[in-house]
Design a binder for these strands. Structure first.
Length: 420
DNA sequence: TCTGGGGTCCTAGGACCC
DNA sequence: TCTGGGGTCCTAGGACCC
């Protein structure tokens, strides 16, 4: 068995460069929501030591001195490009598993008869570059974990090996693992790294040599599986069909801090309405609702509170959800508090019309038609064409800032590029 | 002044049951 | 002094990922 993983190099930056040639060859960073942190960096920006997740205000001088270009996140664009490069992968294999916005697993052999896995991977990279314009790297291995490690090694060795690394060969694994720190391995975060170091486990070779029972003892069954996978034994499922969504969240920092119950109520209602919209789009209903609001953790004694409730019967009706969120907001709000973020989570999601009916609840028989009409209008004429009154209307100071956003080049007819 | 958002999985421990 | 045993279910919290 061969597992492959394709990842797009510096995806958000590569996406921005696709439609804005002035960004090519210069340092670029793409910012998180609210234009707060660097979440993607071009190679030139990495060379200037801009770190992942670094707050923008801390690197203002470097941005100015080196002319680093900034862009707000443009998720419509990234989601559309994700669809496009996965369509190319699907031309090569019928086993694509979309893993994240910029990575997809697949299984070899691909549909190229007679080509070796490595040769076919090079062909796939070329096709994605030619058809979509995005640079990628591919890792191959007998397990998903090994393909992820191979992918990381493909980044590090791109100049030598051309962006494809295959870790089937145990001798090659042995050699490379000696040099590869465990913190770089998929599944080893800072906490596990800190527990493993005192045990003398520092390289991937050390990790792969751990007896599985010891791994389980030090960590959990997750670490045990990771160690087995490093040894070439498959423990993870491959899923062409994505699992149904189990929970969803809409949480945002405010553009400007919020100090009144009215504003917090509107901000909370907007997030709740968006969360309900998201699960309706998937035909799901929620059984559990959580709302929270808090101040800045970088300030002394920030306000912070949350409330949760069961939804019975499970629902995706914004009228029901917003009413409960409104009550929760009143319970959460502390007068005098300065709030910087709030959010709504919907959990225990199940397919609509499948759950047990609630004996004592009355369900509005007209709701499906009403909600379908709402969603139809908002999808046709743009988000928030029609909303519930408690969401307020128009742009507000507390809305998320995206001051450097590029146009929706590929998904909105009014914003497509013009060629002269 | 300014510090992202959205997921999944696992475990420990409490509540409850017979 | 001595105070059962074995389950299930739920939740909070931690860890990880991109």
């Amino acid at each position: 068995m061969t597992h492959g993983i394709v990842d797009v190099a510096n995806f958000y930056v590569s996406a921005e460069r696709l439609f804005d040639p002035s960004l090519r060859g210069v340092p670029v960073i793409v910012l998180s929501n609210n234009d707060g942190c660097a979440v993607a960096r071009s190679e030139e920006a990495k060379a200037l030591h801009v770190r992942m997740g670094e707050p923008v205000f801390k690197i203002r001088d470097r941005i100015k001195r080196h002319g680093i270009q900034l862009r707000s996140s443009n998720y419509e664009l990234y989601a559309d490009l994700n669809r496009r490069f996965n369509a190319v992968i699907a031309e090569h294999t019928d086993t694509v598993e979309i893993y994240s916005i910029d990575e997809s697993f697949y299984r070899a052999p691909t549909l190229h008869n007679g080509l070796g896995d490595v040769e076919a991977a090079h062909r796939l990279r070329e096709d994605i570059l030619r058809q979509v314009g995005l640079p990628t790297r591919i890792g191959l291995g007998p397990t998903r974990t090994l393909s992820k490690v191979a992918n990381a090694l493909a980044k590090a060795t791109e100049k030598v090996w051309g962006g494809v690394v295959d870790l089937h060969d145990t001798e090659l694994r042995r050699r490379l693992f000696e040099q590869w720190p465990i913190g770089e391995v998929w599944g080893i975060g800072s906490a596990l790294e800190a527990r493993l170091h005192p045990l003398g486990i520092r390289t991937t070779a050390d990790l792969a040599a751990m007896p599985p029972a010891v791994a389980r003892d030090v960590g959990t069954v997750v670490l045990e599986r990771l160690v087995r996978e490093l040894g070439g034994i498959e423990c993870a499922d491959f899923k062409v069909e994505p699992d149904a969504l189990k929970a969803t969240a809409v949480t945002r920092q405010f553009g400007e801090p919020v100090k009144t119950l009215d504003e917090l109520g509107e901000a909370m209602a907007r997030r709740a309405a968006r969360a309900a919209e998201k699960i309706r789009a998937q035909g799901l209903v929620a059984s559990r609702l959580i709302a929270f609001a808090h101040g800045s953790r970088y300030r002394p004694n920030p306000p912070s509170a949350s409330r949760s409730a069961r939804l019975s019967p499970p629902t995706n009706d914004p009228r029901v959800i917003l009413r409960i969120v409104g009550q929760m907001t009143e319970a959460i709000f502390q007068p005098g508090g300065v709030y910087t973020k709030c959010g709504v989570l919907l959990e225990d999601l199940t397919p609509q019309g499948q759950g047990q009916a609630d004996l004592f609840a009355t369900v509005d028989p007209r709701a499906p038609a009403l909600l379908a009409a709402m969603d139809g209008l908002n999808s046709r004429f743009g988000r928030n064409t029609i909303t519930l009154a408690v969401q307020g209307h128009g742009a507000k100071a507390f809305d998320t800032k995206r001051s450097q956003k590029s146009p929706a080049w590929t998904t909105r007819i009014s914003e497509i590029p013009v060629a002269r």
